[in-house]
Simulated scan of single mutants.
Amino acid sequence: MLERASVVEGVVPAGRRTVKVVPFVELAGGRVQGVVSSGSDVDRVYVSFVAAGGDYYCCTNNNRPCGGLGGGPCKHIREMVDEAILQFGAARVAAYLGVADVATADDAPALFGALRGAERKESPGVVFSRFLNYLRYCELTSRPGTVLEMGWFVS
């Protein structure tokens, strides 16, 4: 018998993520998108995405293209996809990106081998603003009761 509830059981993460390297990753808008910390500058982050079909892009939060984009996905995109696989599982990420043979795409290199896409420049604004909104929720203090910003149903 099904119970009636307004809370849906979440998906258990597939592995332990390294939030310091990739603080934000999500499956949204037909792509894997996220924010990756710079390895050389603590004040810089990269906004990256891989779309269904394989198109990709990576740039800084102030819209400067990543220097590692040279005919293929850069290390920031690969790190982001690795973290997405840890969080959501390889099969779910591969299916979301439209990979035909989900069973063979069990890690980032295999996933990129199954995708055929090209660099597609896009503004980082949407992904970066989603990240900042996510940070706002992470900074809320824990308190008993209802958090109004997270109330989805009208009572």
Rank of each mutant, 00 (worst) to 15 (best):
V11R: 14
L97I: 10
F24E: 06
A5T: 15
F49V: 04
Y96L: 04
G145Y: 03
C74L: 08
T18Q: 13
D107Y: 09
P124A: 04
G70F: 12
Q33D: 12
V19F: 05
R116S: 08
K75R: 11
Y57M: 08
D107E: 09
E26F: 06
R92S: 11
S48E: 10
A5I: 14
R17E: 15
E149K: 02
V93S: 10
Y137D: 05
A105E: 08
R16N: 08
T104D: 08
L140E: 03
R116V: 07
F49P: 01
V50F: 03
A91K: 15
P65C: 12
A5L: 09
F128D: 11
L27V: 06
M150R: 09
V35I: 10
V22S: 04
L140I: 00
G67H: 12
R143P: 00
S37I: 06
F24R: 11
G70W: 08
P65V: 15
L111C: 02
Y57L: 05
F88L: 05
D41V: 00
D41E: 02
V36L: 07
Y96C: 11
F128Q: 10
A90E: 05
Y46L: 13
S142T: 07
G39F: 05
G54K: 00
Y96D: 09
V12D: 13
V42K: 13
P23W: 11
V102L: 06
W152G: 11
G67D: 15
G34H: 13
D106I: 02
G113W: 02
N61V: 12
G71I: 03
F153N: 07
G68V: 05
C59T: 07
D82F: 13
H76K: 01
N63M: 07
N63Q: 05
G53V: 00
C74V: 11
D106G: 07
C66V: 11
G125R: 14
D55T: 06
S129F: 02
G15H: 09
N133Y: 11
Y96G: 12
R4S: 14
R17C: 10
M80Y: 01
E122P: 04
S129G: 08
D43Y: 13
V25A: 14
R16S: 09
L86M: 13
F128A: 09
